[in-house]
Design a protein around this nucleic acid. Sequence first.
DNA 1: CTGTTAGCGCATTCAT
DNA 2: ATGAATGCGCTAACAG
Lengths: 340, 340
Amino acid sequence: MRTQVTIRDVARVANVHPGTVSRALNARTRTLVNPETAERVLRAAQDLGYRPNSIARGLKTNRSYTVGVLIPDMTNPLFPPIMRGIEDRLGESGYTLLTVNTDNDAERERSHVEALLARQVDGFIAATARLDVELLAEVAAGGVPVILVNRSLENGSLPAVTVDDHQGIALAVEHVVALGHRRIGHVGGPQNVSTGHGRHLGFLEAMSAAGLEAPPERITFADAYSETAGLAACEQLLDREPDITAIIAANDRLAIGCCDSFDRRGLSCPDQISIVGFNDMPLVDRLRPPLTTVRIPQREIGAVAADLLLTSLGEGSAQTEQILLEPTLVVRGSTQAPAG
Amino acid sequence: MRTQVTIRDVARVANVHPGTVSRALNARTRTLVNPETAERVLRAAQDLGYRPNSIARGLKTNRSYTVGVLIPDMTNPLFPPIMRGIEDRLGESGYTLLTVNTDNDAERERSHVEALLARQVDGFIAATARLDVELLAEVAAGGVPVILVNRSLENGSLPAVTVDDHQGIALAVEHVVALGHRRIGHVGGPQNVSTGHGRHLGFLEAMSAAGLEAPPERITFADAYSETAGLAACEQLLDREPDITAIIAANDRLAIGCCDSFDRRGLSCPDQISIVGFNDMPLVDRLRPPLTTVRIPQREIGAVAADLLLTSLGEGSAQTEQILLEPTLVVRGSTQAPAG
DNA sequence: CTGTTAGCGCATTCAT
DNA sequence: ATGAATGCGCTAACAG
């Protein structure tokens, strides 16, 4: 059985009142107590192996110093670095994370949020792609700060940390255009998630800025961010427009699916067709060919989101800051000038 | 501000005593209350949007229904599936996870464990490779159940869920032997972590069982499970024993490092040299060549560990069951018969 | 079957 | 500067 040493035990040993122990142990109130007494209390606590029960504390202070983190699926390599960014920053401030995987399932999401609320989390960081907006808005309206990560709301009603999808796609498009490509296709992500939508728009804009056409025939959409969905979308695209020389994919997994499609058709990449991904997932630098992709600062995303949450927590103010982080292009072997 | 609806508010609306509300709301004690009253209470709770404060409950029941999960670094793709296995199983039973990354740093480990203990976690699942054994044993001795994952203690003093490293390496060795290889090297992992140690022993045994020699010259050790450490160890191995035709690596990342070494030397894999990894990490099936590797049931490991913890939690008994899960061999392109 | 009481461990009044 | 008392929200033990 766990033998909890309480503040009362310490008080008994130090020969003071429990209240005094509480004051002596809490840095903020330590000045209220005689230094010698404080010293005695500290020693007693040390000797007894006293460990404050943060749950009991939270009951009193109405703070749990825990934060709920909503992730679609941490098995997706995109998320762990973000989570670490969050953990490292929040950990410095004494917060611990309650992380849950939602699998983008509305039912799971709701029940998880309920459970975390019941655990009195002080706030949420949500990296879920299509989390029920109302649910989150409701939570935020209830006074629990919510920070969005990797997605934003149309109306900007919740603070969010995202990467500039337009800029990222622009980097990709400019790169292949500079290589000499003119007939460029886009394998887009699901259009009901903000990254899929934003990258699609970014593609249209960047093509237009380059003075190139981007007709609907040269754009297909995957219904999920998976290799198989990417393969299917790419097949459809190449069936329709076989003379495309470069493809901008909405993410690395789709890009990998595109490579599968190339293989299936006997298309050599990058000799006959170039491909650019998005995210720079681990190991994509070791694929055949190494994938040219848009890198996003995952860890920083997490850290910035944590910062945002910390200020919300501190000031109690409902800010709705929208932070846009810059992606960078990583050129590898999957892109080259189009065949003469 | 968060406006907490308490059990008292519900009581007022339902016109009963708070104690009755508690009973009506708790499935286990609901039978003690008049069905009609219970109905009234439930409706009141519903109307008010009552959400039980599990922290307050925990204070009373001395249960937090949270579990601490110790991971070296969840950025390592080996761990997320294990974590999901844990979460899914434990979630079914109402537990939420407090996950921390220890970076294999003793200092971080201790402080994290302290923090989690202060948060009254009901138990731990530790996937850390070289966690301070004393720390964990201490915790377990204090009455908080600890389950080890992916590692075990020499003396088996703590329950553990691991894969059979010996068997896994045996599968790898038997495979290359069957292909005709005779001069087989081993790039081992850090010997101070149980997997590194176990796989090394497994290699020696399997070679002996195959009637082959495994002299020390044909074995080198990486000082970490990283690609660069694998590269260095492989370089050393091939400098010493250039006529090796196959290498069994202690894990996939080391195997990838070995491939780097092959590249550097102009050795073609698998034509001139074969390589087998361990873990079957995501994307290793898409490397050049696709990696032959030993797959471990990551998700199951997590689920089984969760089960073990649940029984410990339920019975309060300090079992020390040791569970060994079976690995399987996944044959891909990185192994073939040795050149004539 | 329901009301009452007490107390989990702590922080925070208010007294002294 | 310290002791005493109160209550956070809930459950459990006891009355009735």
